[in-house]
């Protein structure tokens, strides 16, 4: 039986691990490579790195981080942040990333998803969506809107429509990131996650809001997510990956325990 995945998300700025609250107030909290290694040894299933470096000249730092992670971590990991072209993505894959994550650039130019899926395969192309809750309207029938640039720019695109479009264009997985829940540690956006997970036929990774083990249980059962993304709750040492997995196992969730 397929296990539910626990994925740790590492935001990287100028080569350092950063964690944001509601996408602002980022602060550096350590070295991403040693963090990745620590989680790998503790039974993590997968990693996601988001490069939140502001300046484009610092992109090579990220390639170096990816290389160093790939040398010691033998689980899948994806990299996102600032990928605008197949060429950007190719550099990260060549450096050792397993999958690439497209986000803002794909909203502005959806063909990017198809281009990446064609070049690297759908299974290596992850569409990451930053989503904000809005009033249900003709423009936003799902009640959720896609935003870009770290949550600052609304795009006038309905979240559910975008998820379906992303799947159609060739994305192999979706990251559903709730801006409302991000960094709050008050729980994932269950309604949003479930709505998208039920609508698409590709795996959905829930993101934003994890603070307690119960939140993971909720999103992996009620929320119908295939995987749960965690950040602050493990980065600050409040919980361990192995502890979370053991607890989920005791609650009847299928997770990978032998590693």
């Amino acid at each position: 039986m397929l296990s539910k995945r626990i994925i740790a998300c590492l935001d990287v700025r100028d080569g350092n691990l950063a964690k944001s609250i509601k996408f602002v107030d980022t602060k550096d909290i350590g070295d991403p490579v040693s963090k990745a290694r620590e989680y790998y040894d503790d039974g993590l299933d997968e990693l996601v790195f988001y490069d939140i470096t502001a300046s484009s000249d610092a992109r090579n730092i990220m390639l170096d981080v990816v290389e160093r992670v790939a040398e010691q971590v033998y689980i899948p990991f994806s990299v996102g942040g600032g990928i605008r072209t197949v060429e950007d993505a190719n550099k990260l894959l060549w450096a050792g990333a397993e999958k690439i994550n497209v986000n803002s650039a794909a909203v502005k130019r959806p063909e990017l998803i198809a281009e990446c899926a064609h070049a690297f395969g759908a299974q290596n192309t992850v569409l990451s969506m930053d989503i904000l809750r809005v009033e249900i309207s003709r423009e936003f029938p799902s009640g959720y809107e896609v935003v870009i640039n770290g949550g600052r720019t609304p795009m006038g695109v309905d979240a559910l429509e975008w998820a379906l479009k992303g799947e159609e264009l060739g994305a192999g997985e979706l990251v559903v990131n709730s801006i409302d829940a991000d960094g709050t540690r008050e729980g994932y956006e269950i309604t949003l996650t479930r709505m998208i997970a039920e609508a698409v036929s590709i795996p959905v990774i829930a993101s934003g809001g994890a603070g307690k083990p119960e939140h993971l249980l909720e999103v992996l059962t009620e929320g119908k997510a295939d995987a749960a993304l965690v950040a602050s709750m493990v980065h600050y040492g409040d919980y361990t990956v192995s502890g979370l997995k053991q607890w989920l196992h005791e609650q009847g969730v299928k997770v990978r325990l032998r590693y």
Partner: peptide
């Protein structure tokens, strides 16, 4: 069953 996603992605026994 639509809850079984394709591709089959993840850890399995």
């Amino acid at each position: 069953d639509r809850s079984l996603k394709v591709p089959h992605i993840g850890w399995n026994e």
